[in-house]
Amino acid sequence: MTSTDEELVARSIGGDSDSFNELVLRWERPIYALAYRTIGREEDARDVCQETFLRAFRALPGFRGQAKFSSWLYRIALNLCRDWIRRERRAPIVQAPEDVDVMELAAAAEPTESIEDLVARKDLSRAVERLMALLPEEQRTAIVLKEYHGLTFQEIAELVGCPLSTVKTRLYQGLTVLRRELAKGEPKKTKATL
């Protein structure tokens, strides 16, 4: 029989590390997906995911079950993502290693493919990803939590600490921006596919 999160948490607090491992197995993909969709970089998302479980493991004795385990985990992950975003804003966007000609590297990586082809090759998934990255963090988080993690408005409101109506407004604004931007990109996409 499959144990619930609450049962696994209780056993983990009692020192059963297999139970915590089961929780990691159960939640690592959703947490990784949340981190990836929030910060947009695979390796950093993996780091955030790993750090989330480390923090959860350390804080587990203090977890009293006030919220669902998943909500608690999401909150840890979102805080880590927020920290990451703050750090990234301070750092330069692209840090080229010393003595490396990035133009040469780009040419060497795809010698036969033009820039146009390279850009056209990206599918809708990338387009959505890029547009999502343009949204303000609050709107993006609301969309990610609702769209990909199926949280209720109430859960999102508790998780991000804002009124329920604000969650709905953020979702509406975010989706409206996506709609407008995707509509802008449509003629270009059609041209590229012809």
Partner: peptide
């Protein structure tokens, strides 16, 4: 359209060691 955005497949390898 949003449903078509899938994150890349993660490579998890460390979990088993926690136990």
């Amino acid at each position: 359209q949003l449903a078509r955005w899938a994150p890349p497949e993660p490579k998890f390898g460390a979990r088993a060691n926690l136990q």
